[in-house]
Simulated assay, not measured.
Amino acid sequence: MTKHRVYAMSFAGVYPHYIAKAEKKGRTKEQVDDIICWLTGYNKEELAAQLENRTDFETFFAEAPRLNPSRTLIKGVVCGVRVEEIQEPLMREIRYLDKLIDELAKGKAMEKILRS
């Protein structure tokens, strides 16, 4: 899949996969939402509106109220690529989110996931 197609994908289309991945490992939709809100600055109502509008990834991150400055502390590998080495800004934001969901699914404590 090309970068352009990833960016044009609906965030709402991928969101259920984040939930399923978390729930399969005994985590909750609320924890996924907490992670997304921490990363982007959306509150729960704003997140719900983005999902309802089927916003694409590019718009989802462009309209984020406040990308968390601590997101740069997110390190590691997603899909074989180190997130801290991704040069393209939007792809880096998407992979930050992927990494956080991976950490949740692996049972990491929320305080650590949210870099508290």
Rank of each mutant, 00 (worst) to 15 (best):
V32Y: 07
P89G: 08
Y96N: 15
L90I: 10
S10T: 07
K106M: 12
Y18D: 05
P69D: 13
L114C: 09
G41W: 06
M9K: 06
D56E: 03
A109L: 14
Y96G: 14
C37M: 14
W38A: 09
Y42Q: 02
C79E: 12
F57A: 02
A49Q: 10
D33G: 02
I94G: 07
T59G: 01
T28Y: 03
K112D: 13
G107M: 08
E93S: 13
D34H: 05
E88K: 11
M91A: 11
G80Y: 02
T55I: 00
I36V: 12
A20H: 14
E93H: 15
L39V: 15
G107L: 11
K75E: 07
H4L: 07
V77H: 01
N53V: 04
K3S: 13
T55F: 02
L51C: 00
Y15I: 02
K24M: 15
F60R: 00
F11H: 08
H4W: 07
G80D: 04
D102M: 12
H4E: 15
V78K: 02
Y7P: 03
T28D: 10
A105I: 15
G41Y: 01
Y15F: 12
E88T: 13
G13E: 02
R71H: 15
E84M: 03
A49W: 01
H4R: 14
A105D: 08
D33R: 03
E84W: 04
Y7R: 01
A12H: 08
L97A: 13
G76P: 08
R95K: 06
T40V: 05
K24P: 09
E88L: 12
P89K: 11
D34C: 10
E103H: 12
L73Q: 08
E93L: 14
V78L: 04
W38R: 00
L73M: 08
